[in-house]
């Protein structure tokens, strides 16, 4: 991240340096929704790049724009009411947002694939697992015969630890537990050897033991296939377990980004600090939890200044009037907060 402290967020100056080994880069993405009540800026000027072999976590609460960012990368946002107000999603020099649906069909599932939050809803209930997998495999490789595809499907199911792939292949989604459905989801997403995997809250609906098995599958796919992963989550434990880099989002914007080790050990943004404190500490004897005061932001009615100002413990007059830029707060960590602005750093 070759950005310096005082410089506003500007992709043209920095993207060549950043796209060194980037497999996917998102440049100044703005995804808006036109609603009867007004324009919701779900993603508002978000830029980042995913380096080859990285696991990049995007954390945030509901309404932070993390899932819309993920959907925008695949150009999956429903239009209307959604629209891409600006920005690019660049994969190998191609801007995905300007591609036709037909061209995207060859990319989705083949080069970028996705795992969804609700594993059962992500599988078509009318077909068996075998049908779903064979369809996916043959969709992207028309030379593959049905028999070969069936064989490959079995191998893929075995790779996600089903000891008896034939039985699973013959099952319908409703016959399986949530964890099994999600493992099928992982197998499906791996079917065409993608370069990038987007995992949107892959373990939120699952209990802790099943969560561990899914995370291990992702970790293995990452290690064995050199897969690059964007992991959307609200759980700092999941992030700690898998990710190498993290982006913290709030009200459609990046508030903090950096290496996971740095951000967790030394969070800079007041929001990141508060979020990390809100994770219950089992060693604490206090039955009360750290709580963040106030309500999540209303995206139709964002304050003029910093979107976190109303809930922030360090709020200054400037925060009410002026929206902060992303500033470099420490080596490799960027923070959208006036505490780290050019004037503030003069005091430090």
């Amino acid at each position: 991240m070759g950005r310096t402290g005082a410089e506003p967020q500007r992709w043209d100056a920095t993207s060549p340096a950043r796209s060194g080994d980037a497999v996917l880069s998102v440049e100044r993405l703005r995804t808006y929704f036109d609603t009867p009540a007004g324009v919701v800026k779900a993603v508002d000027d978000v830029s980042f790049s995913l380096n080859r072999g990285d696991i990049l976590a995007i954390v945030g609460e509901s309404g932070s724009g993390k899932s819309v960012t993920a959907q925008s990368i695949m150009k999956l946002v429903a239009m209307p009411p959604g629209r891409y107000a600006s920005g690019q999603v660049v994969l190998d020099g191609i801007d995905l947002l300007s591609q036709s649906e037909r061209a995207l069909g060859a990319i989705r599932g083949k080069r970028i694939s996705m795992i969804f939050q609700n594993p059962r809803a992500a599988l078509n209930p009318a077909f068996t697992v075998s049908t779903l997998m064979v369809e996916t495999l043959r969709r992207h490789d028309s030379s593959l015969s049905r028999a070969e595809a069936v064989k490959r499907a079995a191998a893929l199911l075995r790779a996600v630890d089903f000891p008896d792939p034939e039985r699973v292949a013959a099952s319908y989604p409703h016959q399986m537990s949530g964890g099994m459905c999600q493992r099928v989801g992982v197998a499906l997403s791996m079917a065409c050897e993608p370069e990038v995997l987007i995992a949107d809250e892959p373990t939120t609906a699952l209990d802790v033991l099943v969560q561990a098995t899914i995370l291990l599958l992702l970790k293995r796919a990452h290690a064995e296939r050199g897969l690059s992963i964007i992991l959307i989550t609200h759980d700092f434990g999941v992030l700690r377990a898998l990710a190498t880099r993290v982006i913290v989002m709030y009200a459609g914007q990046i508030q903090e980004q950096g290496r996971v080790d740095d951000v967790l050990a030394n969070p800079q943004h007041p929001y990141t600090k508060a979020l990390i404190q809100a994770v219950p500490d089992p060693d604490s004897t206090d039955q009360r939890l750290h709580q963040i005061e106030g309500q999540p932001p209303d995206l139709l009615n964002l304050p003029a200044g910093c979107s976190f100002a109303d809930r922030c413990a360090f709020v200054m007059p400037k925060c009410r009037s002026e929206r902060p830029e992303l500033y470099e707060a420490a080596a490799g960590t960027d923070v959208r907060c006036h505490l780290f602005g050019p004037e503030a750093s003069a005091h430090q």
């Binding site: 000891p163 099952s171 099994m180 098995t213 995370l215 291990l216």
Partner: peptide, 12 residues
């Protein structure tokens, strides 16, 4: 996950 997970999860 590698010890018990697979068996704990394999439940239809």
């Amino acid at each position: 996950a590698s010890q018990t997970g697979v068996l704990a999860d394999d439940e239809d």
